[in-house]
Amino acid sequence: MIITNVKMILEQEIVNGSLEVREGRIVALSDTQSRHSSAINGQGAYLLPGLVELHTDNLEKFFTPRPKVNWPGGSAMASHDALMISSGITTVLDAIALGYINDQGTRLANLERMLNTIVSSQQRGLNRAEHMLHLRCELPNADTASTFETLVEQGPVAMVSLMDHTPGQRQFIDSEKYRTYYMGKYGLNEAEMAKFEAEQTAASEKWSDANRQQIAQSARQRGIALASHDDATVEHALESSALGCAVAEFPTTVAAAKASHEAGLKVMMGAPNIVRGGSHSGNVAAAELARHGVLDILSSDYYPASLLDAAYQLANMPDNHYDLCQAIKMVSLSPAQTLGLTDRGSISEGKRADLVLAAACDERLQVQQVWRQGERVF
């Protein structure tokens, strides 16, 4: 396969030219136009590496499209996969929450069903993107560590994150924000919220530290990438570094992001934060971290199309450290390297032909075609 007349976004430069693929790998790049009759004409659009998504809970929307509605797993997975690939995402870490703090929710009920569907569909070759697992471990729960040890053996777990959403911790250092968030989310009145808050605080005091140490040790022994979550202080960042975390997911302050970056963790922020112009929960804006030069990876989180949109917007923002090549690396090469996936993430000879053809349209990049290992999937 030859793709010609494209602006190839490489690691350090953008090259107008052509690319050749054989047996699913990139074998040659050229700064000239191909005259081969079967070459695919990109009409001057951008050609970029397939995006690598480290943290998305998008699958949950398809398993539970409405409250108390459980959708068949195969259909849910196919719809989720189609949305991923049409957003230019060729490698996906589907985030599965365990030890979730509200045992009345749908996440725990769907846990095993979602995991089995992801693993089965990938093994059977039903997915257009490549799907792996990201286990999100809510630490203040008696069953989190044991559940983790069971699930980590059942599928291709590529990342583990350590979460603590109790009042006074990470995302919710401001307890008033905690009360506002959960009263709205679960429809709790004042008395119910006070009881809920007390229960979660007690659970955190009893289980969080032990679970954090046990799960981190288990992930390190298995060679699985470890991520912190919502670190808010320098102390949090140093603790995460000491545990062996490779990624700082969604730090909530500039101080925590800077400390994480300086400690060698890859700072990851939500792409919706860029697109919307700030955090929906009132924490630090991703664009501000970009201006400080401490933003390394973007994740689509809850909105798949935001990943490419955010990278393109970031490259066009004034007063930051990222041109288009650097911004695209944040959604391709940097996350791939974090997972140790050396076969993808950039357009270069020998890498997998995971490719996205996208044209600039109304201040965003519109995905036109997608290939995974040289096979067109969109």
Rank of each mutant, 00 (worst) to 15 (best):
L108V: 01
G88H: 14
S87T: 09
V69D: 05
S75G: 04
N110W: 00
L135S: 04
L98H: 00
E20Y: 03
S87Y: 02
M84R: 00
N5K: 07
M84C: 12
I118Q: 00
Q33C: 03
L48C: 13
K68R: 15
S38M: 07
G44Y: 14
T144D: 08
D94S: 06
D143V: 04
A129I: 02
V119L: 08
S86G: 12
S87K: 01
P140R: 15
L51Y: 07
C137W: 03
A39W: 09
I96N: 02
T32E: 12
V15Q: 09
R35I: 08
I26R: 08
T32V: 10
H55M: 07
I85F: 05
G74R: 11
L126D: 11
L139N: 01
H134D: 05
H36G: 00
G99K: 00
E112G: 03
H131G: 03
Q33G: 01
D57K: 04
V15D: 02
Q104Y: 04
R22M: 14
I14C: 13
P72H: 04
D103L: 02
L48K: 06
A82Q: 12
V92Y: 01
S79G: 11
E20A: 14
I85M: 06
S34I: 06
Q122T: 08
W71C: 07
P67Y: 04
T32P: 00
V69N: 00
G24L: 07
T144K: 05
A97S: 11
T32F: 03
G88M: 11
R25D: 09
M8Y: 03
F62D: 00
A82L: 11
S34K: 06
Q12H: 14
D81P: 12
N41S: 13
L10M: 11
H55G: 05
A28Q: 10
S75L: 15
G125M: 11
N70H: 12
L115Q: 09
L29I: 15
T56C: 14
D94P: 01
I89F: 11
E60I: 00
Q123H: 11
A45K: 03
P67T: 04
I96V: 10
A142C: 08
I96F: 14
L139H: 03
V119N: 12
P65S: 07
N16R: 10
R25G: 05
M84N: 01
V92S: 00
A78L: 14
E130Q: 12
I9P: 06
I85K: 02
V119T: 14
R25M: 13
S37F: 13
G125V: 06
L108Q: 08
V52A: 09
V6Y: 03
Y46G: 02
E11S: 15
G125T: 10
W71N: 15
I101T: 09
Q123V: 11
G125R: 10
K61G: 07
H36R: 14
L133D: 08
E13G: 08
L54D: 03
N127D: 09
I40C: 04
L139Y: 08
S120D: 15
L10I: 05
D81S: 07
R107P: 00
L47S: 08
A78P: 01
